[in-house]
């Protein structure tokens, strides 16, 4: 017997609703769970003091700073290369063996587990280049890791800019670079920035790649060559070694808030930029 159209319609709606509610519910539950466990630990002292006694006491200031430094290095290094590659692939070369090869390479890089990046960074940056466990080694390793994300999202963003805009640019006597800089870049920027935010999220949350390259020292990093323990690594160690679950949750809660703040801030920034023309 065939299902009546009305019944199948209602059934489909119920299934789709249920999956949406389930997913959103799960997300909210995780968020609420960690915030409920972690927020009571958060205090001014927790944010402004360095850890003491292997993390049993004190705060997490040095891990916050380490997270920001390592992420900053990664984004500053990866953004120009990633966005540059995306522009090369979309604007400066024709589809061919070369572009397919680069894209295949980027996709393969994206699929590699982060621990492999950690191992690579450890052997290449830490040992071979003698950078040691440091903010720089960690940042560079993360830069390699987020490169594919930035390339792919930037490429998508650039591709969605109507070809017509480029034609107009050329027809006004602009060179290729001027056309790209004044018409393609502004239109593609929101998409490119979204990709960078995604990349920041990955950096901030990464443990495996960082623990092998930036180390797990608890002091406040003072230079690019200082070893560093990021927040994600900190709560991994705190939880794994059973040092202090409540401090691990506190760190996790702060990490979530940090990612939230970064996303909202960058979105506001992009919207303001885009709104100028709309």
């Amino acid at each position: 017997m065939r299902m009546s159209p009305r019944l199948s319609q209602n059934l489909a709606r119920a299934v789709i609703w249920a999956s949406a509610v389930l997913v959103i519910g799960l997300l909210l539950f995780i968020l609420a769970f960690i915030l409920a466990k972690g927020l009571p630990t958060l205090s001014w002292d927790f944010l402004t003091q360095n850890p003491s006694d292997m993390g049993r006491g004190g705060g997490i200031l040095s891990t916050i700073a380490s997270t920001l430094f390592v992420t900053l290095v990664a984004v500053v290094v990866a953004t120009p290369f990633g966005v540059g590659t995306a522009f090369y692939l979309t604007e400066y070369t024709r589809e061919g063996r070369m572009t397919r090869f680069i894209r295949f390479g980027a996709e393969s890089l994206a699929a590699i587990p982060s621990i492999v990046y950690g191992l690579f960074g450890f052997i290449f940056f830490v040992i071979t280049l003698k950078m040691g466990w440091s903010v720089l080694s960690g940042g560079l390793t993360l830069a390699v890791m987020i490169l594919p994300t930035i390339i792919r999202t930037s490429e998508e963003a650039i591709r969605t800019v109507p070809k017509m805009y480029r034609d107009v640019g050329f027809s006004l006597g602009a060179t290729k670079w001027q056309t790209i800089a004044t018409t393609v870049v502004p239109s593609a920027l929101p998409g490119i920035v979204t990709g960078i935010i995604l990349a920041i999220g990955r950096c901030v949350a990464e443990t495996a790649a960082v623990i092998l390259t930036a180390g797990s020292a608890l002091q406040l990093p003072t230079s690019l060559f200082s070893p560093a323990r990021t927040m994600a690594v900190h709560f991994y160690i705190m939880a794994r070694e059973g040092i202090s679950m409540e401090r691990a949750y506190g760190t996790a809660a702060l990490l979530i808030l940090l990612i939230l703040v970064i996303n909202v801030a960058v979105n506001l920034l992009v919207n303001r930029f885009v709104a100028k023309g709309r």
Binding site: M164, S171, L172, G173, T183, S187, G277
Partner: peptide, 21 residues
Amino acid sequence: VAVLRKRIGMVFQRPNPFPAS
């Protein structure tokens, strides 16, 4: 070519202002 295109303007089939002021 840029100078040439500056000397010869073009208007396209569909109105295509940039999303700017």
